[in-house]
Design a protein around this nucleic acid. Structure first.
Lengths: 146, 146
DNA sequence: AATATTCCCGACTATTAAAGTCGGGAATAA
DNA sequence: TTATTCCCGACTTTAATAGTCGGGAATATT
């Protein structure tokens, strides 16, 4: 219930991978897919969608690939997740049951609680930049000394 | 992505309804279903399942129905949600991608963030008792003066 | 120009979880 | 004995997620 859909996780991991290769030229989808164990064709779809967020951009052709638009310390997990929850999922709603058919028209005892949870979560997401994630990985010694 | 499944919402609303009728004898499923706009047959399943949590109990027959075992100030939203996320959903995992096939075996840069989010959410859930919800509803003047 | 490479686009399928239903049986009280 | 109410297990439906595919368009190399 608190676990983001795989698509979101893939998106985050892909961007994480791009962050690790900042300023090293575009990274190929296939490389990202391999490094992060993401189904290739699915990742194509995801990354392509992410371009609309302005977080990543791409270049086609020979030395083509994806790259981060801004440096990793200026991109947060919140930026990504917020973008991905736009349009998407009619079930998603700010507070109560469902935007479309809340039987209580928002006057429901739970709504303030749902809102507070959402805010708490996004406050963490917003405070977590991809640079932070890179640093953490290195501090933990997982960076698989390339 | 942060919105609990309908089943969980139904469960919470049903218990909320029971809380409002504490010490007034068992409440019939059909009454709860009406009051809270929950599909009757579905609610049967949900409440019956909740008995295993020890939060509610039931009585059959003429003046049968469901009732809360403990007073509303001793039951929290966290109690309910924690119970409902047991067994359930193989996708659910504490931290990373999926308990079954995390490609990073838990050594993933995101895991600590997921954990913190989960903790933040449950800290709110745990602090919210059904008595609190009743009070809030009354303070807000939604209690539809019976 | 020709070619290899890489992203791009749209539609399509598959899988799974969630949501909801149903018939009939068992307890309980009037 | 009857009305009522929960109980049980299996079933169906719906919708979201996940993933695939063929072929086209840009780009750089030779």
């Amino acid at each position: 219930m608190l676990v983001p859909p795989k698509k979101n996780q893939y998106a985050l991991r892909a961007i994480f991978e791009l962050a690790k290769h900042m300023d090293q030229g575009p990274v190929k989808i296939s490389d990202i897919a391999t490094a992060q164990s993401i189904p290739l064709r699915f990742l194509e779809v995801i990354l392509n969608q992410l371009k609309a967020s302005g977080i990543v951009d791409s270049k086609r052709g020979f030395h083509g690939g994806y790259f981060l638009v801004k440096p990793p310390n200026q991109v947060s997990v919140g930026d990504v997740l917020r973008f991905l929850s736009r349009d998407l999922s009619p079930r998603d709603c700010i507070a109560c049951v469902s935007k479309i058919s809340c039987p209580f028209d928002g006057r429901c005892a739970f709504s303030s609680m749902w809102i507070r949870v959402k805010e708490a979560a996004f406050s963490i997401y917003d405070e977590t930049s991809f640079q932070d994630l890179i640093d953490q990985e290195q501090d933990a010694g997982w960076s698989s000394e390339q």
